[in-house]
Computed example of a mutant assay.
Amino acid sequence: MGHNLETRSLMDELKSFDRKGGLFDLGHPLLNRMAECFVKAAGIGAVQAVTREAYLTATEGGDSTSIPPEIPARRKKHRFSELRGETNRSSVEALVKSTGKESLQWGLAAGMYSGITYGLKETRGVHDWKNSAMAGAITGAALALTFDDSSHEEIVQAAITGAAISTAANLLTGIF
């Protein structure tokens, strides 16, 4: 009795995404690219949110005065303020809510950036640093708008930072 089952490792599955064209087939390359970037970045954002909270909890040791001075005052604040030593339902809900918000921000930023660069490439017919700068600026400003206390200066600063980082990444592509 022969079995026709193919045994594939996780790495084989991940490598096959390149041949298939990605994780999604939503009918248009723009939608596929945006959805794929959203999912990947959202996962990274969730991991980052949880690890940051774990780090702050471990370094504080229950005392907010023991936070290392190199962490800016904005970052010293726990995102999961309801988690302080609790193991009840509200702490799990706070973890899910806060992690979800942060992963959504990361996902939206990556999806938006990818979509804008793809759209500019199709519109202008070329992918260059100008597309990256514009996409980075728009994405940075949009991301700053998702923060609770964003001022005009912070939005402009985020747009400039997004443009600078994406332009540098585009110009350094292929060098390393």
Rank of each mutant, 00 (worst) to 15 (best):
M1A: 08
H3R: 11
H3C: 04
L5R: 13
R8H: 04
D12W: 02
D12N: 12
G21V: 12
F24A: 14
D25G: 08
G27V: 09
G27P: 00
L31K: 07
R33G: 10
R33W: 02
E36C: 01
A46G: 14
T51K: 01
A54S: 13
Y55Q: 01
T59I: 15
T59A: 07
E60L: 06
S64I: 11
S66D: 12
S66G: 07
S66R: 15
P68Y: 08
P69D: 04
A73E: 13
H78F: 15
R84A: 15
T87A: 11
K97P: 00
S98Q: 11
G100K: 06
S103M: 01
S103Y: 02
L104R: 00
Q105S: 08
Q105A: 14
L108P: 02
A110Q: 12
A110S: 14
M112I: 09
G115Q: 13
G115V: 07
I116C: 05
T117N: 05
T123I: 13
G125H: 10
G125L: 08
W129M: 08
A135W: 04
G136W: 03
A137L: 07
I138H: 09
G140S: 11
A141I: 08
L145P: 02
T146S: 13
D148P: 13
S150I: 02
E153K: 09
A164M: 12
A168V: 15
A168D: 01
N170I: 00
N170D: 14
F176H: 12
F176N: 12
